[in-house]
Design a protein around this nucleic acid. Structure first.
Lengths: 176, 176
DNA sequence: ATGTCTGCAAAGATTTTGCAGCTGA
DNA sequence: TCAGCTGCAAAATCTTTGCAGACAT
């Protein structure tokens, strides 16, 4: 079992450190399944759903179960290694990039759904001031901007989401 | 049927206008159920879930069905009379205040979940510039800040969410 | 040795939908 | 009249959980 001897070296430094700390702090056990799923979560900077993570994990080790994926997601959320982000879809979407970029934000195309991550120091300062002004202590911030992407702007449309919108189509079940 | 003769006068002016326009534009029918549910949605500035809206609607007219509530929510979203906001709970939460305050934002206490709405003109300008700089056309924006509220700051804790957090409790079903 | 973890299948929860009958325009 | 709307119950989807056996420490 290639992953059972420790966290794989391919994990980013920051991620590995925080992961180790979390294992120690909480006394969690280091199981092959967990290591596999964690590796899968950080194998790319792409956001993922529970099922997409399951897919990735199974391509590393086919004997991974969906339940364990969900349990590992809780583990990663608890360690603040990933965060749930709002896509208002029927399912939760997770972002593994907050370890490297703790204050990044999201710009989403209202049409095709394409998403861009960006950081901005002005915004960070602004957020800090604003929060204090309202009598709160700053903690996390995330700006989500919906806008029209380049394709939409130049072409006049990007087919993708238009269909779904016109039909008023929403995913069944919810969840979301 | 007290609501069948038109949109009740209690709806805010802006809401009523946009609602009328939407009825005309889309050729939707004006049914007692819809009027009831719309009235319920704007009977308070509070955010609501589908079930809470159903509850409110039934207190006006007990013969309202859950399915129609869901269908009316789609109708209201389509008219941009309400918006879905991110609470990362297991269910969708809707905000009826975007008609009156099209650019408002949310500050959420990470502990008790208390939510404050605020507007800020600096942020609006910022959002506009930023979006264009990234090559997009601005559309909607919503800043969601997570922070520690006053109770938490002074008392050191506000019991509410602490329990849920410690247990790692999440609502079953998805929903979220 | 033992308390934690996994996998499976079943349960839970939210949201959508098919259909038959009703109703607004 | 008749296309669109409602209510009901069933379906669909995502997520959590109980339990028995496996395993990390």
């Amino acid at each position: 079992m290639r992953l059972s001897s420790g966290v794989p070296a391919t994990l980013p430094e920051n991620v590995r450190e925080r992961l180790e700390a979390h294992y120690r702090r909480r006394g969690f056990r280091r199981t092959p399944q967990r290591e596999t799923i964690v590796a899968a979560a950080f194998s790319s900077e792409e956001h993922f759903t529970a099922d997409e993570l399951w897919e990735r994990a199974r391509s590393i080790d086919p004997r991974t179960s969906r339940a364990t994926v969900y349990r590992t997601i809780s583990f990663l959320l608890d360690a603040d290694l990933i965060r749930e982000i709002d896509l208002s879809q029927g399912q939760a979407v997770y972002d593994p990039n907050f370890v490297e970029k703790p204050n990044h934000n999201h710009l989403v195309c209202v049409d095709c759904g394409r998403m861009i991550e960006f950081e901005d120091s002005h915004l960070e300062v602004f957020h800090e001031c604003l929060t204090r002004r309202l009598g709160f202590l700053p903690s996390r911030q995330n700006l989500r901007i919906e806008a029209c992407c380049e394709t939409l702007r130049t072409t006049g449309r990007c087919a993708h989401l238009i269909e779904a919108r016109i039909k008023g189509k929403r995913l069944p079940g919810r969840r979301r």
